[in-house]
Amino acid sequence: MSRISKEQVKHVADLARLSFSEEEIEKFTTQLDAIIGFAEQLNELDTTNVEPTSHVLDIKNVLREDVAVPGLPREEVLKNAPDHKDGLFRVPSILE
């Protein structure tokens, strides 16, 4: 039984801001299905009352003094932008 359908893969692709051809959807569905199937071995383990670990260090909220420091120069920041105008990043129209 397949664990993930082509429709689900299309939905996930949309969430991930990726687009695929029908052929690629086919391939990704098969591969993701296999990987998810493999991952389901974790269900063999009873993890009731086991705390999740998000990272291993015993560090919580690291704070610093709220002191303003100079940021990066605007021209530098825009240097790698594919498109910019008047000191701003330029994107295609957002409103219809």
Binding site: R17, V77, N80, A81, V91, P92, I94
Partner: peptide, 18 residues
């Protein structure tokens, strides 16, 4: 948007991302 490759011919912002 801010750095790196940008695809050509996108119709809108979401399309550009994709």
């Amino acid at each position: 948007i801010r750095y790196g490759y940008r695809a050509q011919g996108a119709e809108n912002l979401i399309d550009l991302y994709k």
